[in-house]
């Protein structure tokens, strides 16, 4: 009899929930993994200059970049709105770390081809890296008609190169900073006194105002003395507005040029005398190559 009771008690004990919900949860514990920082910036540009962001793999971004004229032109030019320079471009993510792009600017009638590579990604957890590093390279082809028909020009005379190393850190979910050491190389310059190589340092950042809006600012400081004496450093401030999958950027800047080859060495506007203009970037993303789980 004693034994039977013993068996019953034992059976009851063993049938009681041995595992609590939390002990079941602990089955999922796994060694820490590297967590890569995402969305350092909302889109591929800080304002005018490139950011460390790339389009996702298989994603094509169509970009319309538009600059009006200087607001200090007064009412006759409707505060700059009568004039416009525009760049149309495509950016495609071959992989998550490699982007290729093409574009055409009305300013200087420049066609450009570019490439952006993510070299390092900011991460925490198992792998700790405090910043992201990308390379951006671009070749511009100036297609303006030749100024002097008596001189023999070569095709290579039309090429302008831009090389940038982009170093960015997302400090907090809302604040990101970036510095962009840049080199512009012009194969042909107007006079022997002009610089072929122009060194510059870009610095920019964003601060979120709300979950879907951020305030962005960007400054490019030109080191090359001759260029710096004739042109102005580029300063742009604006807002990023994200509207469900698409990003709209609106800003004011002193640069009429839109690509780095144009604005780094050639900004003529001076903020102090009111040479500022309104600009915007419109982007639309298309998924050309869907992730494999979404292929029907």
């Amino acid at each position: 009899m004693k034994q039977i009771i013993f068996v019953i008690i034992l059976t009851l004990l063993s049938n009681s929930p041995l595992f609590s919900q939390d002990s079941l949860m602990s089955l999922f514990d796994s060694p820490p993994q590297a967590i890569y920082t995402q969305a350092t910036f909302k889109t591929t540009r800080v304002v005018l200059g490139q950011s460390v962001e790339n389009p996702g793999k298989g994603n094509l971004i169509f970009v319309i970049q538009h600059h009006f004229g200087y607001v200090n032109k007064g009412a006759y030019d409707f505060f700059g709105l009568d004039q416009a320079t525009i760049r149309l471009g495509y950016e495609y993510g071959i992989t998550d770390w490699l982007m290729v792009g093409i574009g055409r600017s009305s300013y200087g009638k420049i066609y450009d081809g570019n490439i952006k590579m993510k070299i390092l990604r900011q991460s925490s957890g198992k792998k700790n890296l405090p910043f992201s590093v990308s390379y951006f390279g671009s070749i511009g082809i100036n297609t303006l008609r030749l100024p002097d028909k008596t001189i023999n020009y070569y095709f290579t005379n039309r090429l302008v190169y831009l090389n940038q190393i982009l170093v960015a850190r997302k400090l907090t979910p809302g604040i990101s900073l970036q510095i962009s050491p840049s080199l512009v190389h012009r194969n042909l310059v107007e006079t022997p006194l002009d610089d072929n190589n122009i060194w510059a340092l870009g610095a920019g950042g964003r601060s979120k105002i709300s979950k879907h809006t951020s305030f962005n600012a960007e400054y490019f400081y030109v080191f090359s003395k001759q260029t710096a004496s004739e042109f102005h450093n580029t300063f742009s401030v604006g807002f990023d507005v994200e509207t469900g999958g698409h990003v709209f950027q609106m800003y004011v800047s002193n640069s009429q040029g839109i690509t780095g080859q144009n604005f780094i060495p050639g900004t003529t506007g001076n903020w102090l005398t009111g040479d500022i203009l309104i600009g915007f970037n419109l982007t639309r993303t298309f998924v050309l190559n869907k992730p494999k789980d979404f292929k029907k």
Binding site: G56, K57, G58, G93, D96, G245, V287, D293
Partner: peptide, 14 residues
């Protein structure tokens, strides 16, 4: 995983 990389980013971020 989302079809659009940007959507995935917004999902996580915002």
């Amino acid at each position: 995983v989302f079809e659009k990389a940007l959507m995935q980013e917004h999902f996580n971020e915002e």
